Simulated assay, not measured.
Amino acid sequence: MPFDIAAYFLRTGDTAALKLWHEYERETKGKSVIRFSKGLRGLLLSDEDLAADGEEGVEAGRLANWLYRRVVALGLEAAVLRSLDTGGFAALTELLTAYHLDTAGLHGPAQEINPAGVDNNVD
């Protein structure tokens, strides 16, 4: 494999491996030589990459700005996504309640967020 050649050169300094690597570069420049197997692309790409790829997600709910800032301040972003992925909206509500966060700022996908009277403080 090509990256095995590069790794071998970096480990050993063998110039024959470096020459082979340069040959690989010349022969594959501008060509698609490494492809994703089915399902691997989704495992490796970020949400931004997938969004740019045209993949659509499902809106599970919305957090008011003040609630989102509290989630970030507590470092719970990954936990929020994991709870939505494993248990949906109910699991997210349970997570926020466990951290004593006001779920009044949590809205289901069909609900609109009313910005009037929003508490913007992150306590």
Results as ranks from 00 to 15, higher is better:
Glu56Phe: 06
Thr15Lys: 05
Leu10Pro: 03
Leu43Thr: 04
Leu92His: 04
Leu18His: 05
Gln111Ser: 14
Gly87Arg: 08
Met1Thr: 10
Leu10Glu: 02
Lys19Gln: 15
Ser37Thr: 11
Ala90His: 06
Arg41His: 10
Gly13Pro: 10
Leu106Asp: 00
Ala16Val: 08
Leu96Asp: 00
Thr12Gly: 06
His100Val: 08
Ala78Trp: 03
Asn65Ala: 10
Phe3Trp: 08
Ala64Tyr: 02
Gly39Ile: 00
Gly87Thr: 15
Ala104Gln: 14
Leu43Gly: 14
Leu20Cys: 11
Gly13Ile: 02
Ser46Ala: 06
Phe9Leu: 01
Tyr99Thr: 09
His107Pro: 13
Ala73Gln: 10
Leu76Gln: 07
Phe9Thr: 00
Asp53Ala: 12
Gly30Trp: 05
Gly105Phe: 00
Glu55Tyr: 08
Glu25Ile: 08
Thr15Gly: 15
Gly30Ala: 14
Asn120Tyr: 11
Gly87Tyr: 03
Ala17Tyr: 02
Arg69Val: 15
Gly105Leu: 03
Asp119Asn: 05
Lys31Ser: 10
Phe36His: 07
Val71Thr: 07
Gly30Asp: 14
Leu40Gly: 10
Ala78Asn: 09
Val80Ala: 02
Trp66Glu: 15
Asp49Cys: 08
Arg11Asn: 07
Val118His: 09
Arg26Pro: 08
Ala104Phe: 05
Glu48Asp: 13
Ser46Leu: 01
Pro115Ile: 13
